[in-house]
Simulated scan of single mutants.
Amino acid sequence: MLDKYNLKMPKEVYSGVNSLDKMKDILKGKSKVVIFTDKGIANSGLLEIPLQYVKEAGVSYELLDDLKVEPSCDEVQEVVDRFKTTKAELIIAVGGGSVMDTAKLASVLFTNDYTVRDLLSDPSKAVKNIKTLMIPTTAGTGSEATPNSIVLVPEKQMKVGIVNDEMISDYVILDAVMIKKLPRKIAAATEIDALSHAIECYTSNKANPFSNMFALEALDLIMNNIEEACNNPEAMEAKNSMMIASFYAGVAIATSGTTAVHALSYPLGGKYHVPHGVSNAIMLMPVMRFNEPMCRELFAKAYDRVSRSNPSLTVEEKSKWMLNRLQEILVNLDIPTNLKEYNVPESDLDILVESGMEVQRLLVNNMRHVTHEDARALYLEVL
């Protein structure tokens, strides 16, 4: 656990029933905004909800709705170059992690002084030039709360994180109406991403009292609401809990950091295009079982927070319950737990290991040291 730590959060966060109504205040005094989204959001009709507030406020807007899912650094740069011509006064991001990550990069690239690729080499160059409003449409990535932006670097076939506090959002609106009609498959994958964030940050070498406060609350909310939120389109209370939990887990990322689950999942997305939430789900149990000897006491404390059932269990029994419950959630939500359907050949094992071991910025957070041999064994479990 860290001896010194700080809390990084967006400046204003709104949640609860009809929280999108707060857009009226945020838009006051603005003459033009740019809305970042993707075709899926636009075609689903979800965009119309926040867009109506923009229209009612009489604010001019431009729409960038062709953002790619899990884009490359060059695809992000192309969007940013178009954004620079808009002369907007506010960025509104309506979407999942890829949309919000692109919007955050745009907020620090409203200049010709550096590019996305420059920030890959030196994230410290980033300086915010325009304020951002994040309206997440999944309860998963927590991007609305973090200073991170993840982009694919094509020549490395690897997703890489650009991290700078300048990218923390100015405004966030967590309105469960934005995830009410989310397809179960997408809801499950993204919400498992939030679960991974929470438990990784809680068991990270960078964990601290601030991050634990948010990570444990996120774990509690997720593990007691995720199945209902995914399975029942009308379960608005559970969905609202998931929106808050995803945000809390994002705050935990900004204050602590993810570990080997995310580190080893990045090559799966970069090379084989496994969706981010799914790749985390695939690596979650192998890494948690690997970490259990070092994290047993922490898992037991998480049990006390999450289960509310039998406090007389031993530490070992509580830890085992947590791992069993995580596995149960994956099974109940029909999320892949191996790479068979993604046709990843065992002959690529060496490539996976080398790529995964490059993500040292996250591997150093893992409480149990991960060697090349450990990474090989973990990947073999899911091939």
Rank of each mutant, 00 (worst) to 15 (best):
D38R: 08
V153E: 04
E237S: 12
T137Q: 04
A194M: 01
R296W: 11
I173Q: 00
M158I: 10
K84V: 11
G250Q: 03
A254C: 04
N224R: 11
I150Y: 01
A207N: 05
I26M: 02
V69P: 10
K8E: 12
N208H: 02
K181N: 14
E144P: 09
M322P: 06
L284S: 02
F36E: 08
P154G: 10
E75F: 06
R361A: 10
S256K: 04
V116D: 02
K181M: 14
T190M: 09
A188Y: 08
K131D: 15
S279T: 13
V127A: 12
N343W: 14
C230E: 01
M100Y: 12
S121H: 12
G161W: 01
I329T: 04
F83L: 08
K68L: 13
V315G: 09
V287K: 06
I91E: 09
G140I: 07
K87Q: 13
Y171G: 02
R308M: 15
E155T: 14
C295E: 14
P10S: 02
H276G: 05
D122P: 04
I49N: 13
N365Q: 11
A218W: 02
P50L: 07
K32Q: 12
R368C: 06
E62Q: 13
V127C: 13
N148A: 14
V359D: 07
S107V: 08
P345K: 05
V54P: 13
P267W: 07
T203E: 01
K159I: 07
E317C: 11
S241H: 14
A176T: 10
N224H: 06
H369R: 10
N240R: 10
N366Q: 14
S107G: 08
T337K: 11
A207L: 04
D175Q: 00
D118C: 06
V17H: 15
